[in-house]
């Protein structure tokens, strides 16, 4: 039988890293920066948190951990790590006007490399006999559900059984939608992404908006990496475990037509598709079908990309100057 009460929390757990990545990339792309470095940024966000947590856990190896510090140290490390990635990307593409695609791809390679390098070093340091580090004490703080969740049966399980970062993901998506579509800052940001020349002539500081949007977007995306390690994977870091989630997040941006609210539904849908193979009963004789079911999210991604390219409403198109550098004195 398909166990819906068990399936939904797992699907949502899967969707959170996607949602962080998707919201972050939407904000970035609205400024006209196509940041293909998001997978790398999420990696860096993850490993930075792991580094912070690792040293904090080491420093209180014998005694008790302070709950506030156990959360704040990895969180700040993670935000700083992804902020640095964002700043590098902006310096290269906004200030030095490098090609955004190339820069983004390089950032991904770089971020994944950094993640695996420090991950490997920490595994050596911890002297573990498996190729992973377990930060279960920190993870316990990150994945702590609301105290009364257990008493509310299926309702508690579906809605209340998550760590705080999960709620933060949904909140950030909603807040970004409000900022993008209801405030003056959002209007200016959209103008920058659509037509930076016009925004500039209207007195908007184009570089400032591009820097801010990209850096904030990177920090949000980096939280996806942190959530993945600390909550979803119960504090276990192993190299390359994060997988293709970063790329899926970028595809989700297109699927959600640059609207974080649609991003919420899109990421839950894709989170579900990502693990649905575990829940489709196949029986022991047809185990190979499971491998086929694993393809589902990627096949759906392909379909979605084809479908979205056929939509022709102007509002649903990517920001007009997406991927282009802005030169002021250029005609």
């Amino acid at each position: 039988m398909f166990d819906i009460v068990a399936f939904i929390p797992r699907a949502i757990g899967q969707s959170v890293p996607l949602l962080f990545g998707c919201s972050g990339e939407i904000i970035t792309e609205k400024s006209g920066n196509l940041n293909l470095g998001i997978p790398g940024v999420m990696y860096v966000g993850g490993i930075s948190g792991v580094i912070g947590a690792f040293f904090y856990e080491q420093s209180c190896a014998g005694g008790d951990m302070n709950g506030f510090l156990a959360i704040m140290i990895p969180l700040l490390c993670s935000l700083t790590g992804s902020l640095i990635m964002g700043l590098i990307y902006c310096l290269l593409t906004v200030t030095l006007r490098a090609n955004q695609n190339v820069t983004g791809l390089a950032m991904t390679t770089f971020g994944v490399g950094i993640g695996n390098f420090f991950g490997g070093s920490l595994i050596k340091l911890s002297g573990a006999d498996v190729p992973s580090i377990a930060l279960s004490r920190t993870s316990a703080y990150y994945s702590k559900a609301l105290p009364f969740a257990a008493n509310l049966g299926w309702f508690g399980k579906i809605f209340l059984s998550y760590g705080f970062l999960c709620y933060a993901a949904f909140l950030i998506a909603i807040v970004s939608a409000i900022i993008l579509f209801k405030t003056r800052a959002g209007l200016h940001l959209r103008a920058v992404g659509e037509n930076p020349g016009t925004a500039d002539a209207a007195g908007i500081n184009v570089s400032k908006y591009k820097y801010l949007a990209t850096c904030i977007g990177c920090m949000i995306a980096g939280l996806g990496g942190l959530y993945y390690v600390m909550d979803y994977a119960s504090g276990v870091w192993s190299n390359d475990a994060f997988g293709d989630r970063g790329w899926l997040a970028i595809a989700l941006v297109i699927f959600s037509i640059w609207n974080p609210l649609i991003g919420i539904f899109a990421s839950i849908l894709f989170g579900g598709l990502y693990i649905v193979y575990l829940y489709i009963p196949t029986g022991m004789d047809y185990m190979e079908f499971k491998e086929l079911y694993k393809m589902i999210p990627y096949v759906v991604t392909l379909f979605v990309l084809v479908l979205t390219s056929m939509r022709n409403k102007r509002e649903n198109q990517p920001p007009a100057s997406l991927g282009l550098s802005f030169f002021r004195e250029e005609r």
Partner: peptide
Amino acid sequence: KLVDVLTATENIILG
């Protein structure tokens, strides 16, 4: 110097 996907009002108050 206008943003195509915005309305007249939004363009006028831009900046």
